[in-house]
Design a protein around this nucleic acid. Structure first.
Lengths: 200, 200
DNA sequence: TATACTTAAGAACAGATGTGCGTCGTCGTG
DNA sequence: CACGACGACGCACATCTGTTCTTAAGTATA
């Protein structure tokens, strides 16, 4: 991504990036000029425009230090947990391979996602138990068979299987002792994309 | 560290923190005022002074958005997903409270922990399904009833309930169609402390 | 009850800041 | 040579922004 930049633009970008990471907030136009001995603010503007045009940064108009880094996953750190392998079928690896890692947070970190704590056993047969945390993606259209968080017009929210039928929606619990709900005015607040359980 | 803050100060701090981490740059004094409906910039200054005095932030004088977060170990600590509330029992909160967050990675980040991918349905009645990820803590002594990853002397690893009995251990699957194993030479590689499932 | 702290309004000001206009020089390309 | 890019200067302007001062209500503390 940085290849299409000129050398000067690259250095400016790296300067901004380092400042944001190390100092916590970005530079002003004139601060950049000071660093690179560019006397005119407009000289810097030229670079910022180029960086924005090439998709490396985003800026808010007329706002101080409002430089947002795009496509920047932050300082590389070994986050997550080591992924050891598969169990119950094969042989354990003697040593845990440290190079394969899994980061649960980034696994679910999509814009808008949020977490709900599950209450009750209505989804028990879908392996979602009381006390589990469900990751919900509100930016996703529910399709038939999805597990969704649905909200009826009374304001009650509930987690069920989502089955649109004719002029209503069947909200089916994953619990054979419970009956499905048939509702007309209902919306899916989001689709359940993950489940996290903490034991101990 | 946040205990010595008033409720108002805490919320202001969290607002700043979230903005820096999600948007990439911090707010101006008046932006904070807008968020909390504080009409006067000085009302906000008051909070910023308090936060600086209590050591949560550092500011550069007379510089826009020059708020530096202190005692913040970087993006990893502020990652996580907003925790919205409980579902299936009550009413959804209209707005998701941004200040309550849950970070799955740090939730399980204990020294030595590792992750295994589950294969098979032997623990299905414990709501652990094929393809799930199990977080295993090897530094924890298994007690009767724990779900453990057990390794027999042949080198096979398997996930089962752990029931020590007399001169052997009963390894009980959570699947009524399967039979328990009775083994003598077995050790628990670790106790399952978490389960993570990714759907979609 | 008196004191201190927190929270906030309103007004005013100096300086910081982003932005636009015009101009200029250099370099590589056709 | 002309042309377009990149890089930069200088200037000017409108806001944005931090800051300070004064006042004041509410709350907790001693």
């Amino acid at each position: 991504m940085l290849e299409q930049l000129t050398e000067r633009q690259r250095k400016v970008y790296l300067f901004i990036r380092d400042l944001i990471h190390n100092r916590g907030y970005g530079p002003t136009v004139r601060e950049i000029g000071e660093e690179f001995e560019i006397a005119s603010p407009n000289g810097v503007m030229c670079h910022l425009r180029a960086l924005e045009r090439k998709g490396l940064i985003r800026r808010s108009k007329r706002e101080a230090r409002a430089i947002e880094l795009l496509g920047d996953t932050g300082p590389e750190s070994l986050e997550g947990l080591p992924l050891a392998g598969r169990v119950a079928a094969g042989v354990m690896h003697e040593a845990i391979e440290q190079d394969k890692r899994i980061d649960f947070t980034s696994l679910f970190q999509r814009p808008g996602c949020f977490v709900l704590e599950i209450s009750g056993d209505s989804m028990i047969e879908a392996q979602i138990a009381d006390g589990d945390f469900a990751v919900v993606d509100p930016n996703r259209k529910a399709v038939s068979g999805d597990i969704v968080v649905a909200q009826t017009d009374e304001g009650n929210a509930t987690m069920k299987y989502w089955f649109p039928e004719k002029d209503h929606v069947r909200l089916q619990p994953a619990n054979s002792t419970m009956e499905p709900m048939y509702v007309r005015d209902v919306q899916a607040l989001g689709v359940v994309v993950g489940v996290v359980r903490r034991m101990s």
